[in-house]
Computed example of a mutant assay.
Amino acid sequence: MNISRWVKIVGEVGGYALSRAITARRPRILMYHRFSRLPKNGYVSAEEFEWQVRYIARHLNPVTVSQIASSLYGSHELPRSSVAITVDDGYQDFYSIAWPILKKYGVPATFYVTTGFVSGDLWLWPDQLRYLLMKAPQSQATFDLGLFRIETPLSADDFESEFWRVNQILLLADDAQKLQCLASMARTWQVELPKRPPEAFKPVTWDQLKEMQAEGLEVGGHTVTHPSLARVSSEQARNEILGCGKMLEKMLGNVTRSFCYPNGTPDDFVGEQVQFVKDAGFSCAVVAFADDGEHRQRYAMRRHASSSDQFQFLKAVSGIELLGMKFRGHHLETRYD
């Protein structure tokens, strides 16, 4: 029997409750991205998300990320068994699907938005990549697009694996190279990218953010254009972070907000950029991974992935995943002064 199967069996007979009790003084942050009405690959369905939110409302104390930071690094008192739900990027499906469920159960959340995306100045590069691959030629050919080669036609069975293969290559490229590569793909395949994202990739609006903020949502920063901050110059990183903070203040007022690093892996973290996050007035910052360090660094607070996988959700929210990381000594570096 593998370890996951063992953990699942133990969890179902009281292990989840025991883990919640053991980790009651260790707040956790959950990470989400996309939502759908019905089950869909890469999305959390409305039914599954409601089950998870209901579980949190019954067994834990939901808070925002800034409330966790205020407790750990300030005078705010945090209840036991606190957990924060975070959602990245700024898609419309948060407003239409996730937020009504959160409101129904009185559960707050932190929504990290890419301000240029919300303003309609751009659409996110992974969505552009997916759109272009959907428009790939049906003829049999091999295309050398600089950073990678791709063979067409793409079969339905191979589409997702090919998308993620190219996605990972572009994640490691400089931001300018990445955008040039996508533009080259569009030219080569004679595909015109719409100025505004299609319905499937549509952002939330500023009016919707104002509405949700008034109802208790923490709207956090996620840069202006969503680059990996390790793949841009120091000046561009500064403009991305401070520009995001200024736009949030202009559109939503001067309130406490946290920041989220795009992509957020250890390879995307640059310690020197923490000063920009502080200068922009953000209360704290989160990364997109978890380890045994928890929230020891105010500007690199750890997050646990959640998804449509109910077992992964239960491991993360109950603290079993955290306890496992501590037992193994699983640690990732995010150094800054």
Rank of each mutant, 00 (worst) to 15 (best):
Ser4Leu: 12
Arg5Met: 03
Gly11Phe: 10
Gly14Gln: 09
Gly15Thr: 10
Tyr16Cys: 03
Arg20His: 06
Ala21Phe: 09
Ala21Gln: 10
Thr23Cys: 15
Pro27His: 10
Arg28Glu: 00
Phe35Glu: 13
Pro39Trp: 07
Gly42Leu: 03
Val44Cys: 00
Ser45Glu: 01
Phe49Cys: 08
Glu50Thr: 04
Gln52Val: 04
Arg58Ala: 10
Ser71Asp: 11
Pro79Trp: 08
Asp88Gly: 01
Phe94Lys: 00
Ser96Leu: 11
Ile97Thr: 05
Pro100Lys: 08
Pro100Trp: 04
Pro100Met: 05
Lys103Leu: 11
Phe111Cys: 03
Tyr112Asn: 15
Pro126Asn: 08
Leu129Asp: 06
Tyr131Ile: 05
Leu132Phe: 10
Leu133Ala: 14
Lys135Val: 03
Leu154Pro: 04
Asp158Leu: 12
Arg165Glu: 13
Asn167Leu: 12
Asp175Met: 05
Cys181Leu: 02
Ala183Asn: 10
Ser184Glu: 14
Lys195Glu: 14
Arg196Ser: 14
Pro198Thr: 05
Glu199Gln: 14
Lys202Asp: 12
Ala214Asp: 11
Val219Leu: 00
Thr225Tyr: 06
Ala237Arg: 03
Lys246Gln: 14
Thr256Asp: 13
Thr256Ser: 13
Tyr261Arg: 05
Val270Cys: 07
Gln273Cys: 07
Gln275His: 08
Val277Asn: 05
Ala280Ser: 14
Phe282Val: 00
Ala285Lys: 01
Val286Lys: 02
Val287His: 07
Val287Phe: 11
His295Trp: 11
Arg298Ser: 00
Tyr299Ala: 08
Ser306Gln: 02
Ser307Gln: 03
Asp309Cys: 07
Gln310Met: 03
Phe311Asp: 06
Leu314Asp: 02
Glu321Gly: 04
Gly324Val: 09
Gly324Leu: 08
Met325Ile: 00
Leu332Gly: 04
Thr334Pro: 06
